[in-house]
Simulated assay, not measured.
Amino acid sequence: MKTEGLKEFYEHKMQPLPENMNATAGHFNIFRIEDCLSGTTTIQYARRDYYKITLIRGVNRYHYADKSIEVDGTSMIFFNPKVPYTWEHISGEATGYFCIFTEPFFTEKLRGSLQELPMFAIGGKPSYILSQADEEAIVAVFEKMLTEIRSDYAFKYDLLRSYLNELIHLALKTEPASNLYDHPNANTRITSVFRELLERQFPIETPQQRFTMKSARSFAESLAVHVNHLNRAVKATTGKTTTAIISERLVAEAKALLRHTDWNVAEISNSLGFEEASHFNNFFRKHTSLTPSRYRTV
């Protein structure tokens, strides 16, 4: 599975490479969607090595790993480098805005991590449906970004960073405050670290890459806790067993690889840590009621 970098992004959009692309303070840029379609309304399924925030109108479908989100109306979508995705425009006028940026740009002068934000967290909500008032407020920020990126103001990137923060918080305000953050305790903290460690092993991008931590015990050893402690914490927080969560993530990755790569089943089996293709077939059929080959054709 291909990873698209900034250089490939600009080549794909047939735009010159910006002067600040290799800046130590990170990279940021903003665009109108209608200026970048280049005759196509579908982009390649791939992982990117940058973040992206999009406001788009019309009916659109996004594929995140093995999940699909179809949105009718104006929405705001947050993409992060850990999750491969593709986008297709279904109907209506494809208009709006998007900005791209790297993590160093966001964190250079701000405290905290992007992964702490609900829209960029693993398993978080990446899509926000906007009311007319929400849309007007967010469009105003994108327009200020477009004006500022073209200016000669010496501190324009500091201002753009502030606008980026404003976009994020405008999206968060569309959700009830009680739904944004959990109040962590010991169980939620260890579950969060377990999930992060699990996600670090994905996405699988080449047949040579191999998923190695497949058991609750291997995660417990990496986290320096007893396996029973990990299992109790995960069960108390999620209602699921550690093994079930690992299996769900493996199935999700298997579906993505079967749908979006041309690797054969043996290559996918090996990359997901199965010693024999038959073991992978049995595992996949147990969780989906289909063989990998059959899933690929339905």
Rank of each mutant, 00 (worst) to 15 (best):
Y10I: 07
E11Y: 05
H12D: 12
K13I: 08
P18K: 05
M21P: 05
N22C: 03
G26E: 02
H27P: 00
H27T: 02
R32G: 01
I33C: 03
D35E: 15
D35G: 02
G39N: 05
T40W: 11
T41F: 10
Q44R: 10
R47T: 05
R47A: 11
R48F: 07
R48W: 06
Y50N: 03
T54N: 07
L55P: 05
L55H: 03
I56M: 12
V59L: 11
V59T: 14
N60M: 06
R61T: 13
H63I: 12
H63M: 08
A65D: 13
K67E: 12
V71K: 03
S75K: 04
S75H: 01
I77V: 15
K82V: 01
V83H: 09
P84C: 06
Y85N: 14
T86F: 10
T86Y: 09
S91I: 03
S91N: 07
S91H: 07
A94H: 12
T95E: 14
F98G: 01
F98K: 00
C99P: 00
F101R: 03
F101C: 05
E103H: 04
T107S: 10
Q115R: 13
P118M: 14
P118H: 11
Y128F: 14
L130Y: 04
E135S: 10
E136I: 03
A140L: 05
A140M: 03
V141I: 13
F142L: 01
L146P: 02
R150Q: 14
D152C: 11
K156E: 09
Y157I: 03
Y157M: 11
L159A: 14
L160Q: 00
R161V: 01
I168V: 10
H169L: 13
K173D: 15
T174A: 14
E175C: 06
P176F: 08
H183R: 07
N187W: 04
R189D: 09
E205D: 10
T206E: 03
T206N: 04
Q209R: 10
R210C: 13
F211Y: 13
S215Y: 00
S215F: 00
S218C: 06
F219N: 02
S222M: 10
L223R: 00
V227A: 13
L230R: 01
L230I: 06
N231K: 09
A236Y: 06
T238H: 10
T242H: 02
S247Q: 11
L250H: 04
L250R: 14
A252N: 11
A252E: 12
R259A: 15
E267T: 10
I268H: 00
S269H: 09
N270Q: 15
N270E: 15
L272H: 02
L272C: 01
G273N: 02
F274R: 12
F283K: 08
R285L: 15
R285P: 08
H287M: 12
L290G: 03
S293I: 09
S293Q: 14
Y295K: 08
R296M: 11
V298N: 11
